[in-house]
Design a protein around this nucleic acid. Structure first.
Lengths: 161, 161
DNA sequence: GGCTTGCCTTCGTGTTACACGAAGGTCTTA
DNA sequence: TAAGACCTTCGTGTAACACGAAGGCAAGCC
């Protein structure tokens, strides 16, 4: 039987996290001794490993609770658990796509900054100067179509050089 | 000049978010009228668009504040702003890799579940039953090395097939 | 004048998954 | 008997808002 500290050492989780998980009911086999101290047996350690794994998969605590409860019900719930994992995978794929969009977006911006630094372009990344720039290329900074264009300035050429 | 509601309509942000951003100092050009009501001019709308864009890039509010302040200082800060964007891109790339890891991980799990559902494998996804399974293949569920290794994974081939 | 409607304000709580510290209890050891 | 090490619970803080409450203000309507 292990204390929180030992369980932390064995699982790689922090003591705080382990208390948090046990309090959330994610470690069904955990017991308390006569001084109300959490005691972990091998099965509890297994559960903690499982939790850590689910966390790595991006599962929320709430879903973990559902998942754990389904596990306790036994093999009859395999299909439902499978569905949870599939949904999680869909979510991960969505995050992947989001990350890809961000990178593409940031790629543009960093390229733009590079151009500015090399004096090849105007500074369109500062919203404070858009009024001056709007009529030329006011939509480099942000992805969707910006405000309806008005505003003018002729000192731009000076910067362009 | 626009109210919060109109600014929300024009920028696609919620009214709550707009109040939040203005209170954080991310919209330097915003004013208040005689009744303490926020008033947005075209430049304020530009700033809001910029904020929305930065948010889409995954930038934190704190960093946005830094970024906005740098913008206000003018073109002398282009290099520092560029550095912020580069860092953000690195972060996005890291998130991308994390998402890829998750998907690979979940791919295994969903495949395993499929195998279980097709009666081709034991249920190794339930930590509550690992005691029974540990001697067979206790490390399918979680990614890193599990409990101090006893048990072999020689039965894995049967599942993989 | 008074009421309703609609917009605005500030303030305060809830969210997620813990991190962190405080205050206090218990056991062991010097 | 006191220190040290460990545990407990409780409470606050985090990020980026969402949401609702309570209240102010102006305009329109009867």
């Amino acid at each position: 039987m292990y204390t929180v500290k030992e369980a932390a050492r064995r699982t790689g989780l922090t003591e705080h996290a382990i208390r948090f998980y046990t309090d959330k009911g994610l470690v069904p086999s955990v017991q308390r001794d006569e001084h109300n101290v959490r005691m972990f047996d091998e099965q509890s350690i297994d559960w903690l490993y499982g939790i850590r794994c689910l966390k790595q998969s991006g599962m929320s605590i709430e879903t973990m609770k559902t998942y754990v409860d389904l596990c306790l019900e036994g093999e009859a719930t395999v299909a439902r658990r499978s569905a949870i994992m599939l949904e999680l995978k869909q979510q991960a794929i969505a995050e992947l796509e989001e990350a890809n969009r961000r990178i593409a977006h940031l790629e543009e911006k960093t390229a733009l900054y590079e151009a500015i630094l090399e004096q090849r372009s105007l500074d369109t990344t500062n919203p404070g100067t858009w009024e001056r720039l709007r009529k030329f290329h006011g939509d480099v900074f942000y992805a969707p179509a910006p405000v309806s264009g008005q505003g003018s300035s002729s000192e731009l050429k000076k910067i362009k050089s």
